[in-house]
């Protein structure tokens, strides 16, 4: 464990909690892409099946359980409890255009052609594009609630911190995983436009609205 990975995990946890609290407190999921949240639930489910097969640490296990629990709780709030506030018209990204190519790529490009490894690879590739429906929805509505931008900032920051973690681990532990790194770079690059708007607008107290 290093400081980049720890702050990355905490940033990820913060994002998940911010979103859950936003929906729960405001009793509304306006502006939130349910499709992205379903993709994140799939990402955690396919990545953390090793909860059943191997134990790494209390931290590792508890974080995985928290991530999976919060992901499904968020999907439940969006599609069941507060479904009246779900903005399906603007959440129109065709996720099949993400899941199918990512599934094919996971079967073709992986470290080991085994069930758990292919699922893990699928999860890594899917996570890198899972935020697209959310970013697409913001571009369609033309704006985002400030709390939602804080959620997105923490979520984007987490994988950027993981990139620093991988540099650290390559240098100090001569460990690196090319699949995770390439997907992590793609994932972080997808946030660049948002990061620019967040830093130039939201941090100056303005509302995030598009076109910029």
């Amino acid at each position: 464990m290093n400081v980049f990975r720890l702050t990355g995990d905490l940033s990820h946890l913060a994002a998940i909690i911010i979103l859950l609290l936003k929906i729960w407190k405001s009793r509304s999921c306006a502006g939130i892409s349910g499709k992205s949240q379903i993709l994140f639930a799939i990402v955690f489910t396919t990545r953390y099946l090793d909860l059943l097969t191997s134990f790494i640490s209390i931290y590792n296990t508890s974080m995985k359980v928290i991530y999976i629990g919060c992901a499904y709780a968020t999907v439940y709030l969006i599609y069941m409890k507060f479904r009246a506030t779900y903005d399906g018209n603007h959440d129109s990204f065709r996720v099949e255009f993400l899941v199918v190519p990512v599934g094919g790529l996971a079967v073709l490009v992986n470290h080991d052609f085994s069930f758990l490894e292919i699922l893990w690879t699928f999860s890594i590739y899917l996570e890198s594009v899972a935020i697209l429906p959310q970013l697409f929805m913001i571009s369609k509505t033309g704006e985002a609630e400030t709390i939602t931008t804080h959620y997105l900032f923490c979520l984007g920051l987490y994988r950027a911190l993981y990139l620093l973690n991988w540099i650290w681990r390559f240098y100090f532990e001569s460990f690196f995983d090319m699949i995770a790194i390439v997907a992590g770079v793609v994932q972080t690059v997808l946030y660049c436009d948002f990061f620019y708007l967040y830093i130039t607008k939201v941090l100056k107290g303005k509302k995030l609205s598009l076109p910029a």
Binding site: R5, M63, K64, H111, D112, W120, S174, F175, A180
Partner: peptide, 10 residues
Amino acid sequence: GIDSKHKDEL
């Protein structure tokens, strides 16, 4: 190793 398999990351 360079591409060690242990999955200790979240």
